[in-house]
Amino acid sequence: MNTPEPFLGVTSHTPVRHHILSVMVENKAGVLARVAGLFARRGFNIYSLAVAPAETKARFSRITIVVDAESAPLEQIVEQLDKLVNVVAISDITPKEALERELLLATIKTNVDSRTSLLDVVGKSGAAIVDVDAGSVTLMLAGTPAACDELERELENYTTVELHRTGRVALPRLGKAAPASID
């Protein structure tokens, strides 16, 4: 088993053999720690993780975990996760069948020279300007992880004050077989 890398949330480093686990958990104190702790002690790598209340808001939350299926066999990751008493259901969405989206927010320093070209980048990428002041703009992109990667690369030509990405969430594409659900 590989040595686990620290949790970075750096989606631009998505491993080739990544899988998306959509994990429905009880909305109780400490459940995220149980999930994260399991990954840490079993040496499973997490590439990104997003948590929010699920559609049945009061009782359950959904954790979307992008896992590295090279750090451990996916079956082991899923079965060990399923043993957590607070885990209610796990769907494994293969990248091919997944609709993946992520949000990128970035504040970029601008001046008279750079502003026009930056606006150009924003326009082409489909991002939006959400805040402006004299010396900087904050832009936002909601798109595929690849689109966010692409924009992040473009922004390397500018001075970035801060750049945040949420980690992806995913749903199976319509018409695809329902993802393997383990409960």
């Binding site: 104190a29 400490g30 720690a33 149980r34 702790g37 399991l38 002690r41 008493v85």
Partner: peptide, 14 residues
């Protein structure tokens, strides 16, 4: 203690 024993219990409750 629930944190300490998270990885060595089948489950725990506070």
């Amino acid at each position: 203690i629930t944190g300490i024993t998270m990885g060595i219990t089948k489950h725990n409750f506070l």
